Simulated assay, not measured.
Amino acid sequence: MKLEPKTGSRLERTVVTGFHRPYLVSSCLQSGLVAVSERGSDTGREPCVKVLGPDWNTLRILGVCSGMGPVLSSPWGLCIDKDGAVLVADWAEQHRVVLYLPEGTGSVIITEGLSSPRGLALLPNGLLVVSDSMHHCIKIYKYK
């Protein structure tokens, strides 16, 4: 959506379809990628993260095929690093942070000490911030 800066009125908008229960969104200014977490459903739709390119087309669907990395059970917070890697806070069955590289398979990078990770943010100095809902805190990890 594009807004008029002074009044906040809508100038234009783009609607991107092809989602089922989209939940949270993250973007990366350097790569132009956008990631959207989907919650899944009782009707057989699996939870996942869709990665969109600058043209709004789906480039990858993460978390549904064990051959490409961990299968997601409840993806919440997510962020994208400058290289296009996607980090996902997955909290339902296993409380963890999963890293999906731009090419190749994904892997779990944090499990210990998390109880209901919900949000993620990357700081410019190479730190990863994780909100840990049930521990009532944020936790900071060295990312790169």
Rank of each mutant, 00 (worst) to 15 (best):
L52S: 10
V86W: 00
L101F: 02
G106Q: 06
I80Y: 04
G63S: 09
R60F: 06
G84R: 01
E103D: 10
L29I: 10
S74T: 11
V88Y: 06
R45G: 04
T58Q: 11
G106P: 00
S73M: 07
W91C: 13
D42P: 03
I110Y: 00
T111Y: 03
S74Y: 10
E103M: 05
I61R: 15
A85I: 00
R45H: 14
I61K: 14
V108H: 09
V108C: 10
A85V: 00
I109G: 02
G32V: 08
W56I: 05
T105E: 12
G63P: 03
A85G: 08
R45P: 02
H20I: 12
D55F: 12
G106F: 01
R60V: 07
C79T: 15
I109Q: 06
S26Q: 06
Q94E: 10
W76Q: 13
E46W: 06
S41P: 05
L59H: 11
A85C: 05
K50V: 03
S31Y: 09
E46N: 06
L59R: 15
D83Q: 06
V71W: 04
S107F: 04
L33P: 05
D42E: 14
D83G: 00
Q30A: 15
L101R: 15
A92H: 11
M68E: 15
S26C: 13
D42Q: 10
V51D: 02
V51M: 02
I80S: 04
R60C: 11
S107E: 14
S31Q: 07
M68A: 12
N57V: 06
L99W: 06
L24S: 08
G69H: 06
D90H: 04
P102A: 09
L33N: 05
G69V: 04
A92C: 09
C79K: 01
P70C: 08
W76P: 00
H95F: 08
V64W: 04
P54N: 08
V51K: 03
I110L: 14
A89Q: 10
A92K: 14
H95R: 12
L62T: 00
L52T: 12
G106N: 04
V71Y: 03
T105K: 15
L29M: 09
R60T: 08
V98I: 13
P70S: 10
D81N: 13
E46D: 09
T58P: 01
P54E: 07
N57P: 01
G18L: 10
E46Q: 13
L52K: 12
M68H: 15
K82I: 00
T111V: 15
S66E: 14
G18A: 10
T58V: 15
S107H: 07
R21I: 11
G44Q: 12
G40V: 13
G106Y: 02
Y23L: 13
K82G: 03
T105L: 03
G53D: 11
S107P: 00
T111H: 06
G77T: 13
D81L: 04
L33T: 02
I110A: 00
S37E: 07
G104P: 03
G32W: 03
